[in-house]
Amino acid sequence: MAVDRALWWSVWWPWAVVWVVTALALLVALGAVVAAWRGRGRYAVAPGVPGVPIYLDEKAVMDLYQVGGYGDAMTKEVVDRVGTTRDGKIALKGLDVGVEGARQSGREVVKTYIENSEPIAVVGVLLGALESAHGVVHVDLRDRTVRGDVALERALGDGARTARLRRIDAYVSVRGEFRETGRHDGTRVFQAPYGDPDDPAEGPQVVVECQSAGLRPDVVPEGVFSARCLGRVQAWKAGSGEMVIRPIAVFL
């Protein structure tokens, strides 16, 4: 019997090693997939546009590209979206440069793309660049939540347990129930309350002032409407309880 076992082991031990190695490899691969999925759920937000854009400040988009530190991310987003032709040229109307040339002339790539694209496409590129660079914090005014991701950790510092909107020194994407509250010289003002009060005018408010030239008046709803504002915190007015955000884009 001992001889039979020795004979069996001498024949099958290489296959046993293969099976063990294969099982270990599968376990490692499964662990990597789970870790990646958890990391994606914690940090990543699917790029794209979460609705119909009703406002876009094109100058602010270019300012963000030029001085905001997201030039490489925006150039990559544009190149990824428009693609290249068979000869390696950027497939963008009015621009005839190769991929290397696009990297060297990124500002012109983005500028030409914005000038030749619909607002919804521009907003998509902007959001994709900000998300890939972990440059935007997501806020929901209705349930008073701030999404914890890399951008929030950078804005508040590691180990922070609470987040105040007025303390966030980063671009914010704020979801809330907005309504128009005023019109001034070339501007229209929208406000949204913190939480979900019965009277939307009650309590602290987020105030967004949009340039009329960048608005799509035929799309702006009447009354109270759910919308998301992408911008940056500009000021906190403690006396009136108003948080002023400079908008780059607003979409339903």
Rank of each mutant, 00 (worst) to 15 (best):
E202Q: 12
C229H: 05
V28C: 04
Q211S: 15
H138I: 01
V122K: 03
V110C: 08
T112N: 05
R166H: 13
F190V: 02
R164A: 07
G69V: 00
V52D: 04
S173N: 13
S105E: 15
A46H: 12
A46T: 13
S240E: 15
K89M: 15
G182S: 09
P217D: 06
I245T: 02
W13S: 10
T187A: 15
G83E: 14
E108T: 11
D96A: 13
A201R: 14
V109D: 03
Y70E: 06
R5P: 00
S240W: 06
G94L: 05
Y113V: 02
V49L: 06
D218K: 07
G231L: 02
V61K: 06
G94W: 03
G182T: 11
S10M: 13
G157T: 04
H138D: 11
V78P: 13
R216H: 08
Q205H: 06
D218L: 11
H138N: 14
Y194M: 09
R5H: 04
V208A: 10
F178W: 12
V172P: 02
G159H: 07
A2F: 12
W12R: 12
D185P: 12
R154T: 00
I120F: 10
V125T: 02
L92P: 00
R154Q: 10
R188T: 11
A160L: 06
R179D: 07
V97S: 06
V34L: 15
G128E: 13
V189G: 02
A163P: 15
L30E: 14
C210Q: 00
V250E: 09
V150N: 01
V78Y: 00
D149S: 05
V3N: 04
V208H: 05
K76A: 14
R175N: 13
D72L: 10
V244S: 03
V99S: 08
V220I: 09
G88S: 10
T187I: 11
I114D: 03
A91F: 10
T22A: 15
I248H: 11
G176I: 07
R38M: 13
T22V: 15
G135D: 05
G31L: 11
A160Q: 04
V110E: 03
K76G: 06
Y171R: 01
Y194H: 01
V109W: 04
V21P: 06
G94R: 06
L215G: 04
S10W: 12
E131M: 09
V137N: 00
L141F: 04
V207Q: 09
V33E: 15
Q205M: 03
S10R: 12
D140F: 09
G48N: 08
A201I: 00
R5S: 08
R179P: 07
I248K: 11
R107H: 14
P14Q: 03
L30K: 15
A2K: 06
V78N: 03
G148T: 10
G231P: 14
L165F: 06
G231A: 00
L165T: 01
D72N: 03
V110S: 00
E202K: 02
G68N: 05
F251K: 07
S226P: 01
D149M: 01
A121E: 14
G186F: 13
R216T: 05
W19Y: 11
P53N: 02
V79Q: 00
Q234V: 09
L215F: 02
Q211M: 12
R5W: 12
V137G: 02
R216G: 06
E108I: 07
P14T: 10
I120Y: 13
G88Q: 10
G186V: 02
G106I: 01
L165D: 06
G214T: 01
